[in-house]
């Protein structure tokens, strides 16, 4: 019998459990998965006193509506998220980046992410989850991870094994910044593209298409002309790789990407820009900017330092 649990009254658009993801499985066809926006994932856990690598609930656009049954539990929500807590007949507008206590009968209504895609809900508790390859991350394409690898749906329960000791409430003053220029390193097939194609890639604006999900982000705009071959012998991919298929529209590989691909790689998004890249909503305009490897490494160190700084402020 589980005494403490959340009843899912609305699943939301794409609500999954995520953690740091899985390593060393690309060779059998399994990607990293894990939280898309790593910084917001870490902050959510820190705000409720969890280990940084603990599982959280990730939602996209519209989040879940949850009713809580049990002893007082601390939660936190990160990202740019509108949510409400319904207690008895009162409604309280929730604030991101702070610890919130939920009581028996409370409803948590995660209405939407604002001008961003992903948000995170951390629980100060041990959740009843199935792990596969040391990770509970749900990969809905391969049906791997917690909840049989499927997204969370209405009428399901999130069972709590143990509520952690409630620590002092914490908060962080933090505003997510938007990104307009995505910095990239030239890809291994950069020379497959015509001079005009290369110019278009770095000078024109692209629009994030609706056909974007945890696997990939499709872009629309000017077509990039290939002069050598629109296919290569299939080879490994990593997240952030920008492939250009025959139709000339770039696709950026994201955390649940196929592990092998056969389209030429025009560029790779630098690690420092990944968290903000995934938060771009369909319709957003972006431009690519070239950086070299050394700059990419320093930018990552800087980004990492900022993240550590934020964590230490909590």
């Amino acid at each position: 019998m589980n005494k403490n649990y959340f009843q899912i009254l609305r699943g939301g658009i794409n609500t999954t459990f995520q953690d740091e993801g899985r390593k060393n499985l690309y060779h059998i066809g399994i990607p990293f998965s894990g939280a898309m926006d790593n910084r917001n994932y870490l902050l959510a856990n820190k705000l409720v006193g969890n280990k940084l690598g603990a599982p959280v609930i990730e939602f996209a656009y519209q989040g879940p509506l949850l009713k809580y049954f049990g002893k007082k539990i601390n939660i936190s929500i990160t990202g740019d998220v509108s949510f409400k807590i319904k207690r008895n007949l009162n409604e309280i507008n929730g604030k991101c980046y702070q610890t919130i206590g939920l009581e028996n009968g409370d409803e948590l209504d995660i209405i939407s992410t604002n001008k961003s895609v992903y948000g995170y809900l951390a629980l100060s508790a041990q959740i009843d989850l199935k792990y596969q390859w040391s990770s509970c991350s749900i990969n809905t394409k391969a049906n791997i991870g917690a909840n049989y690898g499927r997204k969370l749906e209405k009428d399901q329960k999130i069972n709590i094994l143990k509520i952690n000791d409630n620590l002092n409430n914490k908060r962080l003053n933090f505003i997510n910044t938007k990104i307009e220029k995505i910095r990239v390193i030239k890809g291994t097939n950069f020379d497959y593209f015509s001079d005009t194609g290369k110019k278009i890639f770095f000078e024109r604006e692209f629009t994030v298409s609706k056909l974007s999900d945890r696997m990939g982000m499709r872009l629309e705009g000017s077509k990039i002309d290939n002069i050598i071959n629109t296919n290569i012998k299939s080879e490994g991919l990593i997240k952030g790789v920008i492939q250009v298929p025959a139709d000339g529209n770039p696709i950026i590989m994201l955390s649940d990407h196929g592990t092998i691909g056969g389209y030429p790689k025009i560029g790779v998004v630098i690690s420092a820009d990944y968290d903000r890249l995934v938060q771009l909503t369909p319709g957003s305009k972006i431009k690519f900017e070239e950086v070299n490897l050394t700059s990419a490494e320093s930018l990552f160190n800087l980004y990492e330092l900022e993240t550590q700084n934020l964590i230490s402020q909590i």
């Binding site: 390593k23 060393n24 499985l25 690309y26 060779h27 990293f32 012998k233 299939s234 080879e235 490994g236 991919l237 990593i238 592990t259 092998i260 690690s271 490897l293 490494e297 990552f300 990492e304």
Partner: peptide, 22 residues
């Protein structure tokens, strides 16, 4: 090193940039 992807004629070695570099 956090992933190795062998394919027909390429091998991609992915790593954690916090722990090592190219």
């Amino acid at each position: 090193v956090n992933n190795l992807t062998p394919s027909y004629n390429k091998l991609i070695i992915s790593f954690d940039l916090k722990k090592t570099n190219y």
